[in-house]
Amino acid sequence: MRALSAVNLLLALGLSPLLLGIINRTKAVISGRSGRPLLQVYFDLAKLLGKGAVYSRTTTWVFKAGPIVGLAAVLAALAVLPLGGVPALVAFPGDVFVLVAFLGLARFALICGALDTGSSFEGMGASREAAFSALAEPALLLALLVFVSRTGTYSLSRMYVWPGAGDWLASGPVLILVVIALFILLLSENSRIPVDDPNTHLELTMIHEVMVLDHGGPDLAFILYAAALKLWLFSALVVGAAVPTGLGSPLLDELAMLAGMGMCAVAVGLVESTMARLRLPRVPQLLTAAGAFAALALAILGR
């Protein structure tokens, strides 16, 4: 079991940039382009790591610390993330809050780095990121509380054993609500389309991309890699709720999970190809909807 947990962590480290590749490829296929290579993010990372970094004289150590702390925090959050019914490398009661706290720390580091540049543009992006994530975080906790209420444990590894095939047959309609809530949070927290467009630069509506404008070289590589890992993390939360585990052998579970992750990336690509970005005042409504879905599920299942 320990070996499998380690394998899961290595899979996350190795395959997470591929998820971004799958999203981009889905979007390309739907819009009739051949698109960039599936492994483009790996190439980008290699290229960025080979470069040097340029720092503005107005920045301090906070700016340099941002990407490193961000990546470290996401890596730490990955350590408590279970996948496919296999417990995480580190599992203890209460690690669900540790996961959310580490995600918050990563965001805090990035926001501080953005504010440290003294650019009003980046400050604006930082303010939006802070405002939206302040709404997303309670919704995420609500969605995870559904698992807590069903399993009676605060450890992610033991929580995510829960929605088995039998549970889907018994309370499927309510479980769908949880999956939808988590998926909306995935889109929001990873700055995907209805909330933020990862492809736009120099546009006044962007959120996440605006904060990383002044980062370059290895720093940008860290940010990019941390973003990919965060996408993997949220996909695992969605897939863990959507795909029942306990199919028989651990290998089968693992394969189902990986297929689920691929499907999740394709779903994100489909959403991005079919939807336009929401106006900024509408984003809080979307996040409220995610929270409402989670609260509905919690109220019904926690009776």
């Binding site: 047959l169 018994a170 309370s171 499927g172 309609p173 309510v174 609500l177 409504q285 409220t288 909807a289 409402a292 509905l296 019904i300």
Partner: peptide, 21 residues
């Protein structure tokens, strides 16, 4: 029972969308 539950959950969602419209 599953279909009934689905309809009730959908009714609850329509309530929320009435309020959010």
């Amino acid at each position: 029972q599953l279909w009934l539950d689905a309809v009730f959950v959908l009714i609850m969602l329509t309530n929320l969308s009435l309020l959010a419209a």
